Amino acid sequence: MTHVTESAPRREETPQHPEFEAAVAGGALTSEGPGSQHRYRNLVLGGIGILLFALAMLTSYSSAFGNPTPNNVHLAVAGNADTIVALEQQGSLDLTVVSSEAKARAAVLDREVDGAVVLPPAGENAVVTTYIASGAGRGLGQAVSGIGDSIAQRLKTTSTTTDLAPLPKKDPVGSIEFYAILFAGLGAALGATVFGRILGTVDTSSRFVERSIVLVLYTGALAGLITLWIDTALGAVTVNPGAVFAVLWLTGLAIGGAVTGVAALGGTLAALLTTLALVILGNTSSGGPLGIHLLNDFFQALYYVFPQGDSLDLLRSVQYFDGAAISGPIIRLAIWAVAGILLTLIAMLIRSRKEAATRLKGAGHRNEDFLRATASPASYADLAALDKPAEVTA
């Protein structure tokens, strides 16, 4: 008689070699790898995906920036009452009537309006005075200036334009701020996605704290590098660099936190899709160098959905308007950050309940085995057999 005892399969130790770790991660990084198993099918699918992404980028950016037209421009007007009444009857402008030229200027500097037009009384030396703020968007400033010129032509008089928030000489187009926000958001979103793959799913309180610390430190470093570049290399910072750093850091925390929450709930694929939406729709709906009120109604509606518009407005308020009208953008960015935290906590709660249900189900099976073993005269022998390795007699 030969007795062969079956025991639990021995768990093989994972070899701690770089080659093995690279293979687990998808292949060594020093080559392109052996290629896909279904070469041509995946080639077609991958090509279609890239083409659709490129087409989405082209469609979004060309639709937003290709034909800038004044849309929902808000103007303060003061002066000749008859002319103001005529302007209000047109219905093409959003007008706020103020009592004096000083209040019209103040409304522009407080970011209550996009520009102001002071209408003179009828006379030979009448001049239409237009106040713009290029810091709120160069294209928007040019559009407001053009509105003032057209009013002067209707009144058959001359016009003059004063820029109350001019752009710096080293950033005459106002594009550097847009790119700063663009790459702060993109870097935060990609960082949150990559960190999720490296550190693993946030499923415990310790991992939640770990990911939060990593995100705070990373976005701080990202904001610091961007601020250093646009200040020292480009000379585009007009105020204390610390204020610009704070805006970029808040942007990174809001976007990175939101993507972290999405990844915790829906995985890496959901995080990548969120990042694509931010790149394709979020950047364009911010208005870029043009300003939000040169976009169509679709992108103006998206301005309140994605965070880049608030970040850009906040940065412009700090740079050119002495911190005017910053509460709204800060609140909306904070909502994005808090939403990320809530999504992460919800994902942790869902996983915790699933694990508890699995443990309870496993305990139920063990109880059934115990009751089955104790239900016969040979109960003790059966119970002992549950923990004893099986023996095979040859």
Rank of each mutant, 00 (worst) to 15 (best):
V85S: 14
G91M: 05
T96I: 00
P70N: 07
P70E: 10
G66P: 08
T59I: 12
A56M: 14
I84K: 03
A76H: 11
L95K: 09
V85T: 15
A81E: 13
S92K: 10
V85H: 12
A64F: 07
S92R: 11
A64Q: 04
Y61A: 05
T69K: 15
D82R: 12
V85L: 12
A78I: 03
E88Q: 13
G79E: 06
L95F: 06
S60F: 04
S92W: 01
L95P: 10
T83P: 01
T69H: 13
L55S: 15
A56Y: 11
V77S: 04
V98E: 06
T59D: 11
A81N: 06
S92F: 06
S62C: 00
S62Y: 10
G66L: 03
S63G: 09
Q89T: 11
V77A: 02
T59W: 15
S62F: 11
L95V: 06
S99V: 05
T59S: 14
V85P: 02
R105C: 10
T83R: 11
S60V: 05
L93W: 12
E88A: 05
N71L: 09
A78Y: 04
A102R: 14
V98T: 13
L51V: 15
L95C: 09
G66T: 11
N80H: 09
I50K: 02
D94C: 00
V77R: 02
S92M: 09
Q89W: 01
A86T: 06
L51P: 03
T96C: 00
D94Y: 01
Q90T: 12
G79T: 01
A78V: 05
G79Y: 11
Q90C: 00
L51W: 06
A76L: 09
N72F: 05
A78W: 04
N67K: 14
D82E: 15
K103Y: 05
A64M: 12
N71V: 07
V97K: 13
S60C: 08
Y61S: 09
P68V: 04
V98M: 07
G91L: 06
A76I: 09
D82W: 01
V85C: 00
A102V: 13
V77C: 03
A102T: 12
L55H: 04
Q90M: 05
A76R: 05
E101F: 02
G66N: 06
A54H: 01
A104T: 07
N72I: 01
A56R: 08
F65N: 04
S92V: 12
F53S: 10
V73S: 07
L51H: 03
S100K: 03
S62W: 11
F53M: 15
L58W: 14
D82Q: 15
R105I: 15
L51Y: 04
K103M: 07
G91Q: 10
V77M: 05
V97I: 14
L93K: 07
